[in-house]
Structures are given as C-alpha cells and as structure tokens.
C-alpha cells in the first residue's frame, strides 16, 4: 500500500466517519469498524474524487470493504491517469 496516499485517505475517512486517525488502520472494515453507511461511503468517494481528480465508478463503491481496498483503488486510478 502506498504509505503517503494511505495516510491522506485515512485522514479523509477519519474526517467523515468521526473516528480518530489513530483508530483507523488499513484493515479497518469501513462499515463494521467505522460505521460508514451508504451516504458516508459516497461522501468519502466524492472527497477523494475532488482531492485526486479521479473518477470512482458508483458500482465500485459497495465493493470497497476495507481502507486498504480504497487506497489500492485510488492508487490504480491515479496510475491509469499517469499521476
């Protein structure tokens, strides 16, 4: 996992979930551990799209279970964009 990207995304997830950054780990389950419901999941996606100027497909959002999966997806999308 890209560490810098990981830290930035944990900061976004912390802001939206209400959990402290220290409580969030790459393997944290967004829904079960961090109480990220469907609206918060879209909110996280929108925040990430704004920050990294990538486009997350709506159908991919429900498949993102852990923080690590979010980071990996964004890293892939940035790579595809040549960032």
């Amino acid at each position: 996992m890209n560490e810098i990207l990981g830290k930035e995304i944990i900061s976004i997830v912390a802001d939206i979930s209400g959990y402290e950054e220290e409580e969030i780990h790459p393997e944290s389950d967004l829904q079960k551990d961090l109480e990220v419901d469907s609206i918060k999941a879209i909110e996280i996606a929108v925040a990430i799209e704004k920050k990294y100027r990538v486009s997350v497909r709506d159908e991919d959002i429900p498949n993102l279970i852990t923080v690590r999966q979010v980071v990996d997806l964004i890293a892939d999308l940035m790579k595809q964009k040549g960032q």
Binding site: I16, I39, E43, V46, K50
Partner: peptide, 10 residues
C-alpha cells in the same frame, strides 16, 4: 461552482 458530481450527499 464545483459541478453536480461534487455535491456532498450528506
């Protein structure tokens, strides 16, 4: 300002 895709759903 930011476009309809970027409105905050919450």
């Amino acid at each position: 300002v930011e476009g309809p895709r970027y409105v905050n759903p919450s």
